[in-house]
Design a protein around this nucleic acid. Structure first.
Lengths: 338, 338
DNA sequence: CTGAAAGCGCTTACAG
DNA sequence: CTGAAAGCGCTTACAG
């Protein structure tokens, strides 16, 4: 690569000291420099194609302007919109992000954290939390600011942006009950995740509130289509007369539909299925999946803003934000077959 | 955060000069230091919880172990698998990646490149190339190693991993011709992109090879569903009797299907539609889209390996790799209606 | 094999 | 308002 243009080159061209150039180019210090000089410096910088070496700046300021992001897997369609929300917010603040795919494996998470710490990340956005989470502990132990997204931990005193699952699950069950369903089952997510656990609990409570039996629940081991298929099969083995299944996320719901397909059952004619998250293109599927829309981009954006505030020291208090989800009725749900 | 442990702290503890610590901890320089000292240094480093400040190291070495990635938009389902291929490969080599979403806007691309250069990226993976591309020029002008993915530029002497579109388009047309289609149209991608241009050219050539008319082409302005819808409408205005449309990517194909829906036309009964790329979940859509599968993950992985080789100086020669795509027949294509 | 010094490109307290 | 100096935490030619 060619030799980079530095602040000294600009200084030489204008005929000032390089510290003056630094100040003239720094939005916060610019007002200490005469407008005429600022002007000349900006022009010279432009002409020479100068841009700052953030590495040097980071070293001096002991800040990296970098945040780390942990996700399970980019190719899980839940995450791209979240990441986009994170990236857009972070960039607007002059930061960049490093993301790692951990496949929900703890050693990959630990390894990623190590690498990120070596890069002096100023904070972490974590979408991979279990209810008891090693990474969260490490961050706390090392005073690394972090915000949890989507999934949270059981312990309190942490900051997180999650979905109001009581509300989300209730909207689904109310919808199904309104359609005359009584034997409603639940394919829950992994119980070590707050979403798996919380949605299952909300399911049971809400069914009880309707005076319906709320214990027809099978937990999937992972949030995958295949695990959804499996859990559905177990459910059907327990109750052949169920008429609706509430899945804890869309991938699990897709797995339920696959299982039904294999058995020659029709959605929603024989059994209604609902999802959760509203991943892309669900509206184009056959049948289009009724689901609970969660504000993915906004969750990423809001968590990031919170993290940036924490880093800036503006908002050191921990807080849990619960985003409101919204039921989207499509055609995987219909009146209960008599 | 706590004050960081530096190389000087380790040096003090062991009673050696900090440069000795630096060497003892560097895999490449370790053999110049007596094993006893290396041992003591490692132990002290461990005890103090030392880990290197990569920022300082980057500044000094003018290397960052970071590569930059330019994509249009993470939420476009074509990209997550490509990125995953890039990240997995890069991480295996001890590098990290910074990605930027540029929304196919040149100023965002330029800005992202500036930021990345400020972070001293050692190379770039570019998925956003136009046939004449400013970013590519900048990289060349500044001796930044780069590899193009999916889209390439007209000029040669660059490295790229792309799809063999002649093969891909031919497989689609052969399939349609085999089904008895004669009036086949093409919704091409933007002509400033190599995929838009190349697939349109392949379409025309291949139609001619079949002695069919190959000029029923409308170019979409962007690779979006909405632009696909628009282009389809223009096509239908030109020829009401067309029986099949080859779209230059899946999103455009989805747009074609939307347009047909609005007009009360059926896929594939009235018109067959094909896509390109094979993004996720196409097989679950209604109708399931016949498309050309491209090896997304592998393209990302292979391009990254090439880039790493270039950075290491192992493989300075430019090369174009053409990946073989594969036709996936689903049910958006059927025999031509008579 | 090890030390002392210089320097990567910035930022910022200290003078003036 | 501007300059001169020091230093962020490393790495590495140069000595010895």
């Amino acid at each position: 690569m060619k030799r980079k243009v530095t602040i000294r080159d600009v200084a030489e061209r204008v005929g000032v000291h390089h510290s003056t150039v630094s100040r003239a180019l720094s939005p916060g210090k610019r007002d200490k420099i005469s407008p005429a000089v600022v002007k000349k410096v900006e022009q010279a910088a432009e002409e020479l194609g100068y841009f700052p070496n953030i590495v040097a700046s980071s070293l001096k300021q002991n800040r990296s302007f970098t945040v780390g992001v942990l996700i399970p897997d980019l190719t899980n369609p839940l995450f791209p919109p979240i990441i986009r929300g994170i990236q857009d917010t972070v960039e607007a603040a002059g930061y960049t992000v490093i993301t790692a795919n951990t496949d929900d494996e703890q050693d990959k998470e630990l390894n990623a954290l190590r690498i990120m710490r070596g890069r002096a990340i100023e904070g972490m956005i974590i979408t991979t939390a279990r209810r008891e989470d090693r990474i969260v502990e490490e961050c706390i132990a090392n005073d690394i600011p972090f915000v949890l997204v989507n999934r949270t931990v059981d312990q309190d005193g942490v900051s997180a942006v999650v979905v109001d699952d009581d509300h989300g699950v209730r909207s689904v069950i109310d919808h199904l009950v309104g359609l005359g369903h009584v034997r409603i089952a639940h394919v829950s997510g992994p119980q070590h995740s707050s979403t798996g656990f919380g949605r299952a609990r909300a399911f049971a409570q809400c069914m009880n509130a309707h005076d319906l039996q709320g214990d027809l629940i099978e937990a999937a081991e992972k949030y995958t289509i295949e695990e959804g298929r499996r859990a559905f099969t177990r459910l059907l083995a327990r109750d052949k007369k169920l008429t609706a299944v509430v899945a804890a996320n869309d991938l699990l719901a897709l797995g339920c539909m696959d299982a039904m397909n294999e058995l020659g059952l029709l959605v929603p004619d024989n059994i209604s299925i609902t999802g959760y998250d509203d991943i892309q293109f669900l509206d184009r599927m056959s049948p289009a999946l009724t689901t609970v829309q969660v504000p993915k981009y906004e969750m990423g954006a809001q968590a990031t803003q919170k993290l940036l505030d924490m880093i800036a020291g503006d908002d050191p208090s921990a807080s849990i934000v619960r985003m409101q989800p919204r039921l989207i009725v499509r055609n995987s749900t219909a009146a209960a077959s008599p």
